[in-house]
């Protein structure tokens, strides 16, 4: 049978599509028409860190044609919901689980349980010291203490001698680990640091957070550096510094990226931002889990997504991407 060149290329295209479809059809043992399912246990979307992570996970799921079940924990009840969300994930019998191991003592037994039940688990964002012992097949994310160390180093480099580390979710072990890393590095450098754990009732109130930090600065006059763990708290800190007339004396740096925080990098109110690149956490989490479940292939060991730094040297590029692609770097 003779085919026109047009028909031939159509056929070739169809064959290529078929191959692609085959490549992403589920494992032969499973029902042919059922797409792969990945359960993703991570943080709540009302915490501004997580929407970019969710966006990354969704984009990867779409690109690969896998079904994504995003199961958020509740930060106000972090231990109990960490357990419950893993139970839900395991009960769904997904092809793979991606989990943010925020409270290792609670989550680790469930990771082991999932692995024992034949569900591969990929650890994401938090849990870098535990994933291997739990039987997970890999880790993508950053190590909390490392973020603190990098922040301490850079603030000290800017001239800070007494750094305040602000913890905005009281009792959150991941955020505490970051301030601990900062304290360790500060000690090595021979300077000082202290922690300010915000009262639970204030942690969602930017105005009150700003005044709390301002009051703390007024009553601890030697503080000349502030490190915060999300962008809203960071801009609350710069407002407090401005109000107290301490601009230029107190250096401010923060984790996470927001539009206002980027503007404050430009006008010098914030020294630098720690970009945790949550989009990559979500995207790679889904990609690696899907590859492992399908092909048994995965990067070996830890894939580090942070800490990456945004300061005056790279702000132009970051700002452009921030404005062009919502939720890839941060929310608009």
């Amino acid at each position: 049978m003779r085919l026109t060149s047009k028909a031939r290329s159509l056929l070739a295209g169809a064959a290529a599509l078929g191959l692609l479809a085959l490549a992403w059809s589920p494992a032969p043992a499973r029902a042919e028409d059922k797409p792969m399912t990945i359960a993703f246990v991570s943080g709540p979307l009302n915490d501004s860190f997580f929407p970019p992570l969710y966006q990354g996970a969704q984009d990867a799921a779409k690109a690969l044609g896998v079904r994504l079940h995003y199961i958020p924990i509740d930060e106000a009840d972090i231990e109990a919901t960490s357990a419950r969300t893993m139970q839900v994930a395991i009960a769904q019998k997904p092809d793979a689980i991606v989990v943010g191991d925020f409270v290792t003592s609670v989550v680790d037994p469930y990771i082991k349980q999932a692995v024992a039940a034949g569900i591969p688990v990929y650890v994401n964002q938090s849990g870098q010291d535990q994933w291997k012992a739990d039987g997970a097949f890999g880790f993508v994310g950053q190590q909390g203490p490392e973020v603190g160390r990098v922040a301490a180093e850079r603030l000290a480099g800017a001239g800070a001698k007494d750094i305040l580390c602000v913890i905005n979710v009281p009792g959150n072990p991941y955020l505490q680990a970051i301030c601990k890393g900062l304290a360790e590095k500060v000690q090595q450098l021979g300077i000082k640091s202290s922690n300010l754990e915000l009262p639970t009732a204030d942690s969602t109130d930017q105005a009150k957070v700003s005044r709390d930090i301002g009051a703390y600065l007024q009553s601890h006059k030697s503080i000349d550096g502030v490190f915060t763990e999300n962008a809203a708290v960071g801009t609350a800190a710069t407002a407090a510094v401005d109000a107290a007339g301490l601009g230029g004396k107190v250096h401010v740096a923060t984790m996470e990226i927001s539009r206002i925080a980027l503007e404050q990098i430009q006008n010098g109110k914030i020294d630098f931002l720690v970009n945790e690149q949550p989009y990559l956490d979500g995207y790679f989490g889904v990609v690696f889990a899907a590859f492992y479940a399908k092909f048994g292939l995965a990067p070996v060991g830890v894939v580090a997504t942070g800490p990456s730094i945004v300061d005056k040297t790279n702000i132009a590029k970051i700002l452009k991407v921030f404005d062009t692609y919502p939720n890839v770097i941060g929310s608009k």
Binding site: S48, P51, P326, N327
Partner: peptide, 18 residues
Amino acid sequence: MGGMLGVAIALTGSSSLS
């Protein structure tokens, strides 16, 4: 709370905006 989060994520993909 839930409804607003759903609307915000659907419209903007985010729960925190400038």
